[in-house]
Simulated scan of single mutants.
Amino acid sequence: MKAPLPASFTSPLHLARNLACEFASNAAERDAQGGTPQAERDALRHSGLLGLSIPTRFGGLGASWRETFDVVREFAKVDSSIAHVFGFHHLMLATVRLFSRPDQWQPWFEQTARQNWFWGNALNPLDTRTVLKTFDGWREFSGRKSFCSGASDSEMLIASAVDESAGGKLIIAAIPSGRTGITLHDDWENMGQRQTDSGSVTFERVRVEESELLLDPGPLSTPFASLRPLIAQLHFTNLFLGISEGAFEEARHYTLKESRPWFTSKAQDISEDPYILRHYGEFWASLEAVRVLVERACVLLDAAWNKGPELGSEERAQLALAITSAKVNASRTGLDLTSRLFEVTGARATHAALRLDRFWRNLRTQTLHDPLDYKLHELGDWALNGARPTPTFYS
Rank of each mutant, 00 (worst) to 15 (best):
H14L: 06
H14M: 07
C21S: 12
E22W: 12
A24F: 04
S25G: 03
S25R: 14
Q33T: 10
G35F: 03
P37L: 07
E40F: 08
E40R: 13
D42E: 14
D42P: 04
A43L: 14
G48D: 02
L50Y: 03
S53R: 08
T56P: 04
F58G: 01
F58I: 00
W65E: 06
W65F: 11
R66C: 10
V72C: 01
E74W: 04
E74A: 11
I82D: 01
F86P: 00
G87A: 02
H90K: 02
T95E: 10
V96A: 05
S100E: 06
Q106E: 09
W108T: 12
R114G: 07
Q115T: 12
W117I: 11
G120Y: 00
L126D: 13
L126Y: 10
T128F: 09
L132W: 01
G137V: 06
R139I: 05
F141L: 09
R144S: 13
F147C: 15
A151K: 03
L157C: 06
L157T: 03
S160D: 06
V162R: 09
E164V: 09
G168M: 04
L170A: 08
I171T: 12
I172E: 08
G181Q: 04
I182H: 05
L184M: 10
L184E: 07
H185T: 08
R194G: 02
T196C: 14
E209C: 10
E210N: 14
L214V: 03
D216F: 13
D216I: 13
P217G: 01
S226M: 02
R228Q: 14
P229W: 01
Q233V: 08
N238V: 04
L241V: 08
A247Y: 06
E249T: 09
E249V: 07
E250I: 08
H253C: 11
L256A: 08
S259F: 10
D273M: 03
Y275N: 13
Y275L: 13
Y275V: 12
G281M: 06
G281I: 06
E282V: 15
L287Y: 11
V294P: 06
E295K: 15
R296K: 15
C298E: 15
D302S: 06
E314A: 15
A317P: 02
Q318G: 10
L321N: 03
L321W: 02
K327M: 09
S331R: 12
T333R: 03
L337H: 03
L341M: 13
V344K: 00
V344L: 00
T345Q: 03
A349L: 06
A352W: 09
L354I: 07
F359V: 06
F359A: 11
R361L: 10
N362F: 05
L363F: 05
T365C: 12
Q366K: 15
L368K: 15
H377K: 15
E378C: 14
A387L: 14
